[in-house]
Amino acid sequence: MADRHIAGVDEAGRGPLAGPVVVAAVILDPARPISGLNDSKKLSEAKREALYPQIIEQALAHCVIAMSVEEIDRLNIFQATMAGMSRAVAGLSPGAHEALIDGNKLPKDLPCLGRAIVGGDALEPAISAASILAKVTRDRMMIAMENVHPGYGFAVHKGYPTPAHLDALKRLGPCAEHRRSFAPVKLLLDQGVLF
């Protein structure tokens, strides 16, 4: 069936200590293939930035959802990611007949059929496109966050638990964008070292 819409779904930012987890869903247009799609982690920043507008312009549909730190702390990172995936697929217009999800788990409330594909971001072009939209969107958010919360190095490490980030966290304490439910942040708060 030529007009069957297959969405690729992926996320960026499950591991960081700060910032949102960003989920994207993309339905590619078979008539307008995009060359160079791959798992966003295997592409340079310049290549991701070059592909981003192409995906936005040439895809049949795309939707990007950011799950906030509050949602991550309330639901846990896994449930927040699953909720984001369902919201991203539901936000597609035209809608998807099937969603290909990167990973080994499917959200329970997907608005269409779903299939989990381990390593899908390197195997399925639509998942690759979703991984690029999610990563570029999240990186841009973290770079902007550096201006709001200077001193943490968000523009460099994007919230991941690098030695520099952990050092800044110990020196400055968590900011509003730190995930309170994540061990290094929770540990500092529990020790009463901060506040």
Rank of each mutant, 00 (worst) to 15 (best):
Q54W: 00
A2H: 15
E49R: 08
L133P: 03
E49W: 11
K135C: 03
R138S: 02
R180D: 09
L194G: 13
V26N: 01
P20D: 12
A116C: 12
Q191H: 14
G91K: 09
E70V: 08
S40Q: 05
A176N: 05
P107L: 04
C175I: 04
V9A: 11
G95M: 15
G103Q: 10
V185D: 10
V69L: 12
G173A: 14
L169E: 07
G95D: 13
L17S: 09
R74L: 13
V193L: 14
A126I: 00
G153F: 08
E11L: 00
P150I: 00
A129P: 01
A155H: 08
A99D: 05
V26M: 00
A7R: 03
D29Y: 14
D102P: 08
H149P: 12
G120L: 02
G103N: 06
A12Y: 00
K42Q: 13
I77F: 10
A24F: 08
P150C: 07
I77A: 08
C63W: 08
L92E: 09
H5R: 14
K41W: 08
A168D: 10
M141W: 09
V193Y: 15
N76A: 06
D73E: 06
L110M: 14
L133H: 00
L37N: 00
G36N: 06
G192H: 03
R48L: 08
P125N: 05
G120M: 03
L37E: 00
A83T: 11
M141A: 14
D3R: 15
I55T: 00
H165R: 11
M82D: 09
V26F: 00
